[in-house]
Design a protein around this nucleic acid. Structure first.
Lengths: 144, 144
DNA sequence: TATTGTTATACTCTATAACTATA
DNA sequence: TATAGTTATAGAGTATAACAATA
């Protein structure tokens, strides 16, 4: 078992944490301007990917939160008219969460700003020739 | 202004967020086994870098938290005997926070496990030839 | 029996503002 | 006046456990 990290390895680790933290902080700040937290944005983004609505349990698993935590956040978003609950047709226990038109409109306003931020802070700072290497390397880290 | 991200760019962004989130989640889990939160670990790690103690305001700025937030966390750590407050000699308003022997001992137990985790999850998954590229690229993202 | 979703509840953490003391 | 640090306080968010309804 290795007992230490070399200077280069430590620098790489700090760079990863620094980049991840920076991006998270700036994104959170941008979302706050739309009165959204990161969790709420993640919910809207998930719901925006499909068109059919997503069950509460499945959504909670995908976002790595508890069911009760999601119930709370869904309530917050529902009270603002951004999402709505619909009973599931296949499973009488189920509830499908989906975007309202207002929710979809908000997402459509927020996403471009989000993308611009990602470009400014991340993509545009990396030599295009290196981007594939960075992508593949980081994908390995996220891999189970 | 660019209005979208290419598939490759999007994949790179997801990889960065995925890697950052993954690392944060796993590290938090490991720290929880020592009854430490990430903030508390960050405080201990900062205090462990030097030997002289750090002022509350300076520490709060470094960790991007408010003074009152740090007062709370310092109180948590102090009640567990991991840190101690000492009045500053140069500035009668100041308080220097420093590690107790117990705090230093805990840090000495936690750090190797932390380093092993970083190696397993990050360093060892990247081709050594690519590590410098990843490091430099990510350092650009963290840069102001 | 297991799963879906909600509720009640308690707890942790964070920030704001007010305050004291010193620079 | 500004800064160091604490305190009081309130608010947001999260998890646990108990619950009802359905699979």
């Amino acid at each position: 078992m290795a007992r230490h990290l070399s200077d280069d390895e430590l620098a790489a680790y700090f760079a990863l944490r620094g980049a991840g933290d920076r991006l998270q902080r700036v994104v959170a700040q941008q979302l706050r301007a739309h009165d959204l937290t990161e969790v709420q944005f993640a919910i809207l983004a998930q719901l925006g990917s499909g068109t059919d609505g997503i069950g509460m349990s499945e959504l909670a698993r995908g976002l790595v939160v508890t069911k009760s935590g999601l119930t709370y956040q869904a309530g917050q978003l529902e009270s603002r008219g951004l999402v709505a609950r619909r009973p599931s047709t296949d499973d009488d226990r189920g509830v499908l969460l989906h975007l309202t038109p207002d929710g979809r409109a908000l997402l459509a306003r927020v996403l471009p700003a989000h993308i611009t931020l990602v470009r400014e802070l991340f993509i545009d700072r990396i030599d295009p020739a290196d981007l594939a290497i960075v992508r593949d390397a980081l994908a390995q880290v996220a891999r189970d």
